[in-house]
Design a binder for these strands. Structure first.
Lengths: 179, 179
DNA sequence: ATAGTATATTCAAAAAGTTGAATATGTCAA
DNA sequence: TTGACATATTCAACTTTTTGAATATACTAT
């Protein structure tokens, strides 16, 4: 259960409301641990109950009031303890591969369409990652410790998408040739 | 929800008991859609209720009796309909990447250890995949339609693990150099 | 005015997945 | 004959995730 930890890690950068958190998930930790508003609000309530974050109600005149959460020392210790505990590789659950597994039951065209759609999605995501890489990081060696770790998560996304694209190409070629 | 579909796809190859199914998941569809006994039995009961599979009680003398399930024509249509429905890319949820995201909060050694452990896991899994590839498929072109789709899921696993290994190497190098 | 958008939070219910068992039959080896 | 192992199924409780809302404030463009 890494949602709590993803939230703590994000709050370490700067205290945020549930709404802010969700927004900040997009384009960062959300690439490898996505969560809805509902999940984040519920988790924040639980974390506050456990004393791992502390909420601070902020009155705003130009916008609805909000509650900004910050990580407590206990929260940071909790996060560090979790990082120290070895974890397994992430279990995969990929619908497209289940479809491929049963691909022989449907016309080739059906699978080809889906493969091309996924190829496009992965191409687009890779572009996004490349774009982030270019704007965020002209020279990886000049990055701070903090940013170097962030950069590595981005690099993971790049390897991941490149792998998918290479596979899509092979799969499309194979399925096309299939009588 | 692809568990039902993964079960149907597996039963298309040959009718099986819940126990058999679970065993057959390992080393095939389980690489990209794993499920426990409990999940499989529950899902089978639901599928039977919906008329998508049909169970047949088999008395055995040398072993406990079992119930063998086969896909009905409705089940096959259901599976095909699902395959025709476009799906999105699989959402990622990867603890290691969350750890990397928060890597700056712990000593370098902690992260390095974890990276090396994962590097080993991915190396081992890649070896397994390569081994399957060699025994299952000397020449991809000679494969049947059915097996060619299976082969493509295997190829996906190979690209996936190669991507992880390339990343692990880069990440280990980067974290090692980090002051 | 009012409709749309962004901010900000909460609720309820269902579906899916996880954990940790318990039960029962039969084989095989020490 | 005892214990370990493989087969075969089921139960209960729990956590996590998903889905589909509802509510409220305030800014902006028409």
């Amino acid at each position: 259960m890494a949602l709590a930890h993803a939230i703590l890690a994000t709050l370490m950068d700067c205290p945020s409301s549930g709404y802010d958190l969700r927004k900040r998930f997009e384009g960062s930790v959300g690439f490898f641990w996505q969560a809805s508003f509902q999940q984040i609000y519920r988790e924040l309530a639980k974390l506050e109950e456990q004393g791992l974050v502390q909420g601070d109600a902020i009155s705003q005149t130009k916008r609805p009031d909000k509650k900004v959460f910050a990580v407590t020392p206990e929260g940071e210790a909790f996060l560090q303890e979790w990082i120290r505990t070895p974890c397994d590789t992430a279990p995969l659950r990929d619908e497209l591969l289940v479809k491929m597994f049963a691909g022989f039951t449907v016309p080739r065209g059906t699978i080809l369409q889906e493969l091309k759609a996924h190829q496009l999605l992965h191409r687009q995501r890779l572009e996004v990652f490349h774009h982030i890489e270019q704007t965020f990081c002209s020279d990886p060696k000049t990055l701070s410790d903090h940013d170097r770790f962030r950069y590595l998560t981005l690099r993971n996304g790049i390897y991941f998408e490149q792998g998918w694209l290479a596979w899509c190409e092979e799969a499309i070629a194979t399925v096309t040739q299939t009588s």
